[in-house]
Design a protein around this nucleic acid. Structure first.
Length: 244
DNA sequence: AAAAAAATCAACCGCCATTCA
DNA sequence: CTGAATGGCGGTTGATTTTTT
């Protein structure tokens, strides 16, 4: 992949990097560092602009960079941090050793955004039906780990909403206003810690086709709150659900 | 098997903040 | 204080690969 290399009107090379260029950049930075990216290509014998060198180093050549697939734990962390920090990719990337901000951003747009959107749509749908009847969700009947985590989550969600209810009342004199974001983060962190006792969640396989219907009692009062999420959908990525 | 569509991801762009003369 | 230089960031593009039709 990459763009076709070419020389622009200023004599600066652009597009995909060659192995020879990579070697020159790597050798120079490893020996002299990069006190000035603008000047670097001149001394390193490269026809690139400094910005291009910087990008190549940070996103591709820098030691310790991870290549390849993201682990479930990494994806879960990205989603959680995105929830907390928004689109501050560089800040998010600092929490993922070996991943560049560009890489994280790409992964989000290519893989994770869709999952979040899909989840939100399902959440909205379930919210619509809340108050009319109980809402049903599918859960595997074959994987005991999933059942265990689901049960745990159901309990935690219930507890979560109770706590949030108190916080909400304390913090908001205006009933239409939202709960303070930091409290949500803290709540979320608590939940993360509670989930650590279920390490097997990281190695879950996609749910089997055969599943049964699991019914919960939605809490009407908080149907529009951020934690009104149902994470027990039969997705192959359902483990991400608690953090939406 | 071929064409079309979708996915991937490296690289570029433009803007903003900071530093420094 | 001002303006140029620089670094850094998020948004976007586009060539290539993979998947689907």
């Amino acid at each position: 992949m990459g763009r076709t290399p070419f020389i622009d009107k200023n004599g600066i090379k652009r597009g995909a990097w060659s192995e020879d260029e990579d070697n020159k950049l790597r050798a120079y930075v490893e020996r002299f560092g990069h006190p000035n990216w603008r000047q670097l290509p001149k001394y390193a014998g490269l026809m690139r602009c400094g910005k291009s060198c910087r990008l190549r180093w940070l996103n591709y050549l820098r030691p310790g960079l991870k290549k390849g697939n993201y682990s479930h734990e990494e994806e879960r962390l990205i989603i959680k941090l995105h929830n907390e920090l928004g689109i501050r990719w560089s800040a998010i990337a600092t929490k993922l050793p070996g991943r560049s901000d560009n890489d994280v951003k790409n992964h989000w747009h290519a893989h994770l955004k869709k999952r979040v959107t899909m989840d939100q749509q399902l959440t909205d749908q379930s919210s619509e039906s809340i108050g009319q009847s109980q809402t049903s969700y599918k859960v595997s009947e074959q994987d005991p780990v999933i059942r265990e985590v689901s049960d745990h989550h159901a309990h935690e969600t219930s507890r979560h909403l109770e706590v949030s209810s108190r916080d909400h009342d304390d913090l908001c004199s205006d009933s239409s206003s939202q709960l303070n974001g930091l409290d949500w983060i803290e709540e979320d962190n608590n939940y993360m810690r509670s989930m650590e006792q279920f390490p097997s969640i990281n190695s879950l396989e996609p749910l089997p086709d055969s599943s049964f219907t699991w019914t919960i009692n939605p809490i009407d009062t908080f149907q529009n709150e951020p934690f009104d999420h149902i994470w027990t959908q039969p997705f192959d990525n359902f483990w991400t659900q608690p953090f939406f």
